[in-house]
Design a protein around this nucleic acid. Structure first.
Lengths: 149, 149
DNA sequence: CCCCGGTCGTGAACGCAGGTAATGAGGTAG
DNA sequence: CTACCTCATTACCTGCGTTCACGACCGGGG
């Protein structure tokens, strides 16, 4: 009715979109709430996770990955330096750049925080059936594609 | 079978938990990014949505639903009053309480914002197969249960 | 009737995370 | 060697959350 051939599919998409949006928002809020114990804020944890996955990089690169502006990243990184979780070194060839590197304490911290978060979520997942877990595995893949688009 | 016998399932839960957490976080961030046009912040929009769904209620009740402290809700509500999206009336019998009511402009605003967000998400969903959409429908239900626990 | 504990909403002061604008150090093309 | 560009940082502003403190109002006992 609206534009082309399959109005029902469009209407179903809208309903699913609304439902998915609400569920996603609530679940995410719930998971984030499971972090406080370590004293690491969400952006701080994200920086550590990136460094663990991608290796040392400059503050500017970190800011790009997190889609925030460089000054915000500078502050976050400085906070992590004070806690001894990352280190700031000079770039070997480019005097402007700074290289942010994860310390051993930082590695331990991200492992610990991740463990705690995943422990909470996996405790919930344990109450599901095998089919339901499969559904979530596939949904995780779909969500990744959606988020990347 | 969930407790001690099947270690592999526990390991799979941990992996799924980690993957789901990342995917959820990214998708949610992406969706939230699709809101800015209306000038309504996320907590403000949430208040309007609650009022539309549940009907008029006191600031304290709103604060409870949003899991924030009353002063924060007072500020958010006042901001919405200034924009003409909600109205604050005296409670008919209890002089302490205030009743927050959605105005017509508020109704229109939440409908518009919701339409814009869902339009973005449903555009992504349109690129999926029927099976994949079914997966997401089921996942939305599972996520709701997880978030409620 | 008046007081008294409890509840509700709010004001003030603070913390944290994001943004923009401007600055300074360092590289690079001409 | 000069001019332009990039990178990180500094200073300041905004939004949203918190805690603490206070005034307004309801209810029940003296």
């Amino acid at each position: 009715m609206t534009t082309t051939s399959d109005a029902p599919a469009v209407a179903a998409d809208l309903a699913l979109a609304a439902e998915l949006r609400v569920s996603l928002g609530r679940a995410t809020r719930r998971i984030k709430g499971e972090r406080g114990d370590a004293g690491l804020s969400d952006p701080q944890f994200n920086v550590l996770a990136i460094l663990l996955r991608e290796g040392p990089m400059s503050p500017g690169a970190l800011a790009d990955l997190e889609r925030i502006q460089p000054p915000s990243m500078t502050r976050t990184v400085n906070c992590l330096v004070e806690r001894g979780l990352v280190r700031k070194d000079e770039h070997p060839t480019d005097g402007r750049q700074v290289v942010v590197t994860l310390t051993e304490a930082g590695e331990a911290e991200v492992a610990e925080t991740r463990r705690r978060r995943d422990a909470w979520l996996s405790a919930r997942l344990a109450g599901l059936t095998a089919d339901e877990r499969t559904t979530l595995v596939q949904a995780a893949e779909l969500l990744r594609r959606i988020a990347a688009s």
